[in-house]
């Protein structure tokens, strides 16, 4: 049963209807990408889709759920590792990428029983500790050979052209599914409960919201998204080195994309991912200056646009392209009782 019982949530405007229609058209066009674009463009778009996956799932966790984690690389690395293990066991590569993410999501359920008892900074640091622990555990696997790592050899079963197209479609499909999943989740009564918990956990519990269960939903979804991104990244780079996949830089990238795009907005992280992708494409070869530039950009946004680009647009113009929100409407209410007559409050 939904944690909120008989309520429903709605937020559709003409603008959001149009935006969803345009988004669907763009996704359909992108589905024909391998037939339309050059191999280089396909590779870059695949990277962009993975960035979007990382950004939207971290935003769901931190921006909507209030659970700021700096250890999402735990799931990113674990997703890639699980894919390596599944393919080593004989599974086809692309189903293995999806199954790896599902397995990591399953692992995140018992993990959530411990981690969600931590609050604020404790949770953030705790997740980083979990990532480091998982990194060390993965290093113990003989197949991985410590920090030497291994490769996704099973990709040899595909030609370079087929591999590029399949990876692209898997990334596009994963991004689309996660976007739709989050859209549906955040528009549901559970989504309203998630945002209530972010505003005040105590108040949410005091009116009957099942805090731990609701937080677990968003925690597991975020773990699934990060794991899927990790498995997909493996299919683009082929090599798996634990140090790279369990690096905190992945969470730093997520935070950058979400802060620049707009924390707690649905549109913002997508815009943030595009900005991060463009900056990486144009300046990624500049080594340390690229990283300094990223840091400086994050600093400028934190100082002058603390709600991010879309957060500013939302505040300034009240624009919401996608119908995410918490227009909570009761399904059916019992008849009202006779009124208690009370005076107006003036303040």
């Amino acid at each position: 049963m939904s944690p909120l019982g008989s309520m429903r949530v709605q937020r559709w405007t003409p603008l959001s209807v149009g935006s969803v229609a345009v988004s669907v058209a763009v996704l359909v066009l992108l589905a024909f990408g391998p037939a339309l674009f050059s191999p280089n463009v396909i590779d870059k778009l695949t990277t962009l889709f993975i960035y979007v996956l990382l950004a939207i799932t971290w935003n769901a966790l931190a921006g909507y759920g209030g659970l700021v984690s700096i250890g999402q690389q735990a799931f990113f690395g674990l997703g890639a590792y699980a894919a390596v293990r599944l393919t080593h066991a004989g599974m086809s590569v692309y189903p293995a990428l999806i199954l790896a993410a599902i397995l990591v999501a399953a692992v995140s359920v018992p993990l959530s029983a411990f981690m969600l008892r931590l609050r604020a900074g404790e949770f953030a640091i705790g997740m980083w500790v979990v990532a480091e622990l998982l990194h060390l555990l993965v290093n113990l696997d003989g197949l991985i050979q410590g920090e030497t790592g291994t490769s996704l050899i099973a990709l040899d079963a595909y030609s370079a052209v087929a591999r590029r197209a399949l990876t692209y479609w898997t990334a596009l499909g994963s991004m689309t599914v996660l976007l739709v999943l989050l859209l549906v989740l955040l528009r549901s009564p559970t989504g309203a409960a998630i945002q209530a918990i972010r505003d005040s956990e105590e108040a949410a519990a005091s009116v009957g919201v099942r805090v731990l269960t609701t937080k677990r939903v968003i925690f597991v979804v975020a773990a699934f998204g990060a794991a899927l991104a990790g498995a997909l990244w493996l299919s683009t780079t082929i090599t798996f080195q634990p140090k790279t996949y369990f690096s905190v830089q992945w969470t730093a990238y997520m935070i950058f994309m979400v802060l620049v795009g707009g924390l707690g907005t649905f549109e913002g992280p997508i815009i943030g991912a595009v900005i991060f992708f463009l900056v990486g494409t144009w300046f990624g070869a500049d080594g340390v200056w690229y990283l300094i530039g990223l840091g400086a950009t994050a600093l400028v946004f934190a100082l002058f646009l603390p709600r991010g680009l879309w957060g500013w647009v939302d505040t300034r113009f009240g624009l919401r392209l996608l119908p995410v929100g918490y227009r909570v409407v009761a399904g059916r209410e019992p008849p009202a009782v006779p009124a208690i007559q009370t005076p107006h409050i003036r303040s």
Binding site: G5, P189, A192, A193, V207, V329
Partner: peptide, 10 residues
């Protein structure tokens, strides 16, 4: 919305 969320108590 604040009021309706309290329907979670059921």
């Amino acid at each position: 919305e604040n009021l309706l969320l309290a329907r979670a108590a059921g």
